[in-house]
Amino acid sequence: MMESLKELYQEVILDHSRHPRNFGKPEACTHEAHGYNPLCGDTVNIYLSLSTDEVVEDLFFDGKGCAISIASASMMTEILKNKTRSETEEIFEQFRNLVTGDKDTVPETEDGERLRVLAGVKQFPMRVKCATLPWHAVHSALNDQTDTTTE
């Protein structure tokens, strides 16, 4: 049992949850969305700046959440910086497949390796929504929806 727990709460994840990167509200952004998990009351706000040629120039977040959702959001902001809109959607799809255990379509790249850190979530079905909440919020932000919930 400790093995799956150790995989879930590995050092990188704990580090991101304690010291989240790109945390806070920037002065300006082009897209914004609020994510909410009604099951646990956790929230995440996404602040995203898209350039005119649809590249993510900046991505920040804030909110309240568990170690998994904060770490997932933090790692996501690092991965998605400088990605295009369509790349962002593609990576979200890969990530969702990975943590729901449906199929592993994550490429063997540096970004892929960073996504895989959260693969341990698939052994904890009740926690998948924690990991995907910030991603759903980015998706909403890009599609000009301001609110998203995991339900």
Binding site: L5, C40, I68
Partner: peptide, 30 residues
Amino acid sequence: EGVHPHDIGTIVDQAGVAVRVGHHCAQPLM
């Protein structure tokens, strides 16, 4: 302190301990 209740719930579950984590349908109280 420093640990979100959801993480508590997942970890203690692995020890066979069932507790409820969340807002307990009492958000004004939370």
